Computed example of a mutant assay.
Amino acid sequence: MAHYAAMGSIPPKRHTQHRRPKNAGPHGGVGTGTGELYYEELMGEEGFSSDSSLLYHRHIPSTVAGVREWAVGDLSTTANHPLMARHLKPHDLFETDAIVRSTDAVTGRRLLMGNGDVRLSYAVCGTDSPWYRNAIGDECIYVERGKARVETVFGSFEVGEGDYVIIPRAVTHRWLPKRSRKDPLRLICIEANSHIAPPKRYLSKYGQFLEHAPYCERDLRQPLGPLLAEDIGEDPAQVTNVYIKHRGSGPNASGGIVGTVHTVPFHPLDVVGWDGCLYPYVFNVSDYEPITGRIHQPPPAHQVFEGWNFVICNFVPRKVDYHPLAIPVPYYHS
């Protein structure tokens, strides 16, 4: 992320003791006190050499009570050979209300295309997803239609049409769609094998958005948090399944990807506070200010995010080329 944030209860200095109030129960209370220690977790994406955040948990975050396999579905790909143009029709993948009602944003994704760097999937969702984290890379989920609540260990978001939801690698979260037969939640899911971040050319060497960038820090929505289990009316001690997508091989691997379900003896929402530069955030396409010119602006002018060997672009309403001799659209590219 481009800037530092802090939420909830954290100690004044990192890697120092942070204790719950002495009179608090086993699942309650925040702040510095003389009770039991909170458990500090360092979450980062490149070891100790890139952005990270520190999270303070009520429970030991590595505790696992059970494990089992999760069949992530068919993620294999077919070569585009002989080479030909493709017209993707993702709406045809979810044709009936019964399919939509039983589909969630994690297990119900249908792979459209992919390679070794990125996978593009589509989902129409009518039910809540399980708790989930992607251990392979960041995810960028675009809300095509509908509304949802996204709950993460960093806090929650209310999302709707036009929102990009950026979920860093290994962030535990779930999707809760606002149920609607007329306007179900429709998601375009971009799963990277790397980071997903604003283009480097939009940022200073210290990470601040530059003046020529088509959006800035003010346009990014941070999580509403911290979010604890009892805040949403759930038992902090309930046993929970967390679905994990990770790399693997063997007879059950699909496209080099496998899944595991970890059963944890507590609710995932146990983070009382966090700080750092790595966290989920939301950006809405309507806050993108398109770069225009008298003559044709190439596709990089429409870029909003980038990953390793791929970019994400917004082709939004804008003043089209206004030179008196400008070539009319469309433009052809090779």
Rank of each mutant, 00 (worst) to 15 (best):
T96R: 09
R186I: 08
E191D: 10
P12I: 09
T34S: 15
L269P: 02
K205L: 10
P198W: 01
E306G: 10
V30W: 06
E217R: 02
R201E: 13
V242M: 10
I257R: 08
S102C: 08
A192E: 01
D138S: 15
L325P: 00
S286V: 10
H15N: 14
D51S: 11
Q222A: 08
V311A: 12
G225C: 09
H59R: 00
I166C: 10
Y39L: 11
A71W: 04
W274K: 02
G31R: 10
S76D: 15
A6E: 15
G137N: 06
D235S: 09
H212G: 06
H59K: 00
A213D: 11
V64D: 04
A229Q: 01
N252W: 11
K13E: 12
A24T: 00
S50W: 12
E144Q: 12
E95Y: 08
R149L: 13
V67K: 14
H296P: 01
N241P: 03
F48T: 13
K182Q: 13
Q208D: 14
F94K: 02
A123G: 06
H323P: 02
I166L: 15
H59S: 00
L269G: 02
T263S: 09
G155F: 12
G8E: 10
Y281H: 12
P177Y: 04
L220W: 02
G273A: 08
E230N: 01
L112G: 11
H333K: 10
G293C: 09
A2S: 15
R294C: 07
Y164E: 01
G293R: 07
N23A: 03
L112S: 09
P290A: 07
Y279C: 04
P265V: 05
H18R: 05
G126A: 10
Y38C: 01
V311H: 09
I60V: 14
H246Y: 07
K89M: 13
L269W: 03
